[in-house]
Structure formats: structure tokens, C-alpha cells
Amino acid sequence: MLKYNAISIDEIFKNVDYAEEIQKCMQCGMCAGSCPLRHHMDFPPRKIFALLRAGEIEKVLNSKSILLCTSCYSCMVRCPRGIHVMDIMHGLAHYAIRLGRISRKKTATFGQEFWRQVYERGRVDEKDLSRRYFFSNGFIEGIKNAVSMADMGLVMLFHGRMKLLPEKKIKGIKELRLMLDKAQQM
């Protein structure tokens, strides 16, 4: 049976950097054993690679694992085949989000808001990032989020660990955006 709108492995190779390297994977499981959040993943990296090779692309793109990477590089430094495991997980997450398959909404939103900071200012304003992240799901939920984290905000403020003034845009922001647009399209 033909799958509706099926995505082929070639699409993955085209859209995810280093993805061809999954062909080198010997399924030893070192990546899975090294991952700090492995217990919370539906498919640890080893299984993700096996699923891709078996053509189960949808399972991979809808897996929560690809959005649970803490970027600790343990898998990458330990992989006996020198596969860019972490980069592939990040690439899969990016591709899945672009296709609208968002398995971990909060983490995806946080990452997208982070990138928006970079794109809009060239730098990240931590308090603006938290505000946008908290309010990303509407006003009421935003207030709830903000209230639940207010203790932390106040502690940071009183200890001089919050920048009071809003972060300014870098001088070269126009050129930076031009470059980033070009990179995103290439």
C-alpha cells in the first residue's frame, strides 16, 4: 500500500546533514547507553538509525527522542564509527519541525524562540526569551507560567543576574539577517 505523502530516505539524506553516516552504524548501542535522557526516549539514537534504515521515516520524525537531545556530545565522542550522532539528531529535529511534526511542543517552541532572538537582535535577551516562551500558548497560560516561575525571576533580579535594560540589536543586524536568510535557503 502506498503511504500518503511518504517521505523517502533520500529526502532525509538531502535535508539532514551527516545523515548518510547512518549507513556506517553497527548498532552497538554506545550512543543509547551514553545518552542522559535515554530512559525518557521512545527510540534512543541506535533505534532511530535502525528505523531510518528500515524505511520507517514517519516513526522517526514523530518520535519524541529527536527533540530530547541535551547536546552533551557523549554519543558523538564515544561512537566507535565516528558518526555525528548528535548532529544527525539535531538535523532530524529541525527537519521534523519544518514538516510540522512536532513531538515535544515546549522544547520545539523554546528552541524556535531562541532562534528568533538571534535572528531579530543578533544576541539573546534571556528575559525576553522567557517571556515569549511562557506566553507562546496564549495569554492565560502565559500568566500561569509566569506566576509559577516568578520566584526564580525575582531571585535572579535581586542577585544582579538579570539584565534590566532590553538587549540592543547588534550594529550589523541587517547584514546578519541577509546572511542567515541566504544560509537557510541554500
Binding site: G91, H94, I97, T107, F110, W115, Y119, G172
Partner: peptide, 15 residues
């Protein structure tokens, strides 16, 4: 400018 830190991949491609 910012380095992109570890979560930018949600919004940006590697390049």
C-alpha cells in the same frame, strides 16, 4: 553575535 547555543537547531538549519 550570539553563537546559537545548543537549541537553535529548532529554528535554523546547520548552515
Amino acid at each position: 553575535n550570539c553563537c546559537g547555543a545548543s537549541v537553535s537547531y529548532a529554528g535554523a538549519r546547520d548552515l
